[in-house]
């Protein structure tokens, strides 16, 4: 309703929007344009800013230099510096080896260290089974090592090496007497059959004093070498059972104390013996006596 004093308002502006302002308003209410105006200018501004920097060599280097500077300054704060290397769980010899394998110049920022790669390096050392590397809060690089445990000595052409239960080299030894408690194995392919060798050594416990070592023959079966040049030839399969039979024979019939050079167990049905010279002659004498008495 119009107000009562109509005289003062005769030149009041027409409240209706003009045709063009009406159209403009409708245009601005169109969803697509509203989205455009909300998203468009910020995106354009951002793009302009990026282009302003990126299209000029000088500005680009200025920005990258500064960013690198900030990154360096941050990474070389004392909180992130590593000053020393400690090795835990390794023998002195292994520790020396590990320190030598990690070519790090201390102090170094922990951002510059590639711990996974260093771990791979450490684990490639023969005597290391597993390594855990961590940077402690005290600023030390701690290498926690699980060393390989040697179970046997393997005699090769060029020397003696210790190997662990999985057939990996642990270290070389100068002389057998350095580790007399470890059993000795030899022959090509001995490393691959280390499990069986360990089982055989366990089975051979009753005659432990006589056993000098195991020799892998033809990369398929084992010979037990005893002192006095005696030898037990074990079959490819059921070697442990065969060895136990020999041990039983040794205990009951004193087999190994006689002049027997080789106990051949390769045939399952019967053990075959190769006698020494004294044994052979005695055998012949007995046979002859028996046949003579028979006549």
């Amino acid at each position: 309703m119009r107000s009562m004093s109509s005289r003062g308002n005769q030149h009041r502006r027409d409240p209706a929007p003009s045709r063009w302002s009406y159209r403009y308003e409708r245009w601005m209410l169109t969803p697509a344009y509203r989205r455009l105006f909300r998203v468009g200018p910020p995106v354009v501004l951002a793009a302009c800013a990026v282009a302003f920097v990126a299209l000029d060599e000088g500005r680009r280097t200025y920005v990258t230099d500064h960013v690198n500077e900030w990154v360096d300054a941050f990474q070389h704060r004392p909180e992130f510096m590593v000053a020393e290397l400690t090795v835990e769980g390794a023998s002195d010899r292994l520790a020396t080896e590990i320190v030598a394998a990690l070519p790090i110049e201390f102090p170094i920022s922990s951002f510059d260290m590639d711990l996974p790669a260093m771990r791979t390096t450490v684990e490639q050392i023969a005597g290391v089974e597993k390594a855990i590397l961590r940077v402690t809060s005290a600023g030390a690089l701690e290498v926690d090592v699980t060393p390989r445990v040697p179970v046997a000595i393997w005699r090769l052409d060029d020397g003696l090496r210790m190997i662990d239960g999985e057939g990996n080299f642990v270290a070389s030894v100068q002389a057998r007497s350095e580790r007399p408690e470890l059993p000795l194995i030899a022959g090509d392919g001995a490393k691959e059959a280390i499990n069986e060798a360990m089982a055989l050594f366990a089975a051979a416990a009753p005659i432990k004093d006589k056993v000098r070592g195991l020799v892998r023959m033809g990369e398929r079966r084992w010979d037990v070498v005893l002192d006095g040049d005696q030898r037990i030839m074990l079959p490819e399969r059921n070697a442990v059972t065969a060895l136990e039979r020999v041990i039983v024979m040794a205990q009951t019939q004193d087999l190994l104390r006689r002049d027997v050079q080789v106990v051949d167990m390769r045939n399952d049905d019967r053990p075959t013996l190769k006698l020494g010279i004294t044994g052979t002659e005695e055998m012949r004498r007995l046979n002859a006596a028996l046949s003579g008495a028979g006549k």
Binding site: D14, P15, A16, P17, R19, Y22, E25, R26, L29
Partner: peptide
């Protein structure tokens, strides 16, 4: 037409 424009515009608003 003006009255319709007025009313439609403010309702749209």
């Amino acid at each position: 037409e003006r009255a319709i424009r007025t009313v439609v515009q403010s309702a749209q608003k």
